[in-house]
């Protein structure tokens, strides 16, 4: 009786999840089996045709590659820098509150705004970055940050790292603060060096938090859209076009809802795989979820 009442109580929550999460996912999957152009009046079931097209679409594979590159570099850098920042602001020092708040600033600025600011910083002709580099004598001529296939992706990663390192730092800081001080004291008594303390106390205790940071950041980075859309629009020559940018163009610029949904499903599938991978590692290592 009591357990039945319990189920009754969770129905509203389940319904909410069904309406806002499960229904859209199923709907996008169904859409991906159709050829549907609202403006052209085309709407017919084509089975797995869109998936066949996807496999043969060089632009899709290029976008997948770009997404992987973006995700790998931005997440790695964010973790390393975030760790450094967290260790730094974890020590007691004057103005601690102020510094901690200041560190969070990039995270608080809306991505669209920060991307626009960075676009002007990276502007080849008038941007402050080239101006500074030229004046310090680090380069001889303006570098074409957003306009060459060599630099554009690096520029996009920089913007993401600038923006999201604070987020990683914040989570890691929270993790650092729950490590008991006694452990460090005991280690000191045993004559451990700072590196040994970091390697054998900090890292093992932080592992679950690190996995959470990696999971969140990987999922976010894999779906990156706004920063890249504003900085380069996916160019030059599709060199920064990620899956989400490509899906957006197909869905909202050409209104090819069927094929656009197919790309969206592929993003979803990839994100699911990544999550499952991380979560199984978390479980095996006896982390938070065990």
């Amino acid at each position: 009786m009591e357990s039945r009442f319990g189920y009754l109580l969770i129905i509203p929550a389940l319904l909410t999840i069904a309406v806002v999460a499960i229904y859209p996912i199923i709907d996008v999957f169904i859409l991906s089996l159709y050829e549907r152009f609202l403006t052209l009046g085309i709407d017919e079931f084509t089975g797995l045709n869109n998936y066949l097209k996807l496999v043969n679409d060089a632009r899709f594979w290029n976008a997948l590659k770009n997404t992987a590159v973006f995700t790998f570099f931005s997440v790695s850098l964010e973790l390393i820098l975030g760790m450094a920042v967290a260790l730094f602001i974890n020590r007691p020092f004057s103005l601690q509150g102020l510094i901690r708040a200041a560190v969070l600033l990039p995270w608080a600025v809306p991505t669209v705004v920060s991307a626009k600011i960075w676009a002007w910083i990276f502007n080849t002709d008038l941007g402050i970055l080239n101006y500074a580099l030229l004046n310090f004598g680090l380069i001889d001529a303006d570098l074409n940050w957003l306009g060459s296939t060599g630099y554009a992706m690096a520029a996009a990663i920089t913007v993401d790292v600038w923006k999201t390192t604070p987020f990683a730092a914040l989570l890691l800081l929270a993790g650092l603060q729950v490590i008991p001080d006694d452990l460090y004291k005991a280690a000191s008594v045993d004559g451990a060096s700072r590196w040994q303390k970091f390697r054998h106390i900090t890292i093992p205790h932080l592992k679950p938090v690190i996995m959470i940071v990696l999971l969140f950041r990987t999922l976010d980075a894999f779906r990156v859209f706004d920063a890249i859309y504003i900085l380069t629009g996916g160019g030059p020559a599709n060199s920064t076009e990620t899956l989400s940018v490509y899906a957006y163009k197909i869905l909202f610029q050409t209104l090819d809802f069927g094929y656009g949904s197919t790309i969206a499903v592929s993003v979803f599938a990839a994100v699911m795989l990544i999550s499952i991978g991380y979560i199984s590692i978390l479980k095996r290592r006896g982390g938070l979820l065990s």
Binding site: N123, T124, N144, L146, G147, S148, G235, P236
Partner: peptide, 11 residues
């Protein structure tokens, strides 16, 4: 200039 691959109207 090489940066012509980045320019929109305002740039």
């Amino acid at each position: 200039p090489e940066y012509v691959t980045t320019t929109d109207e305002e740039a």
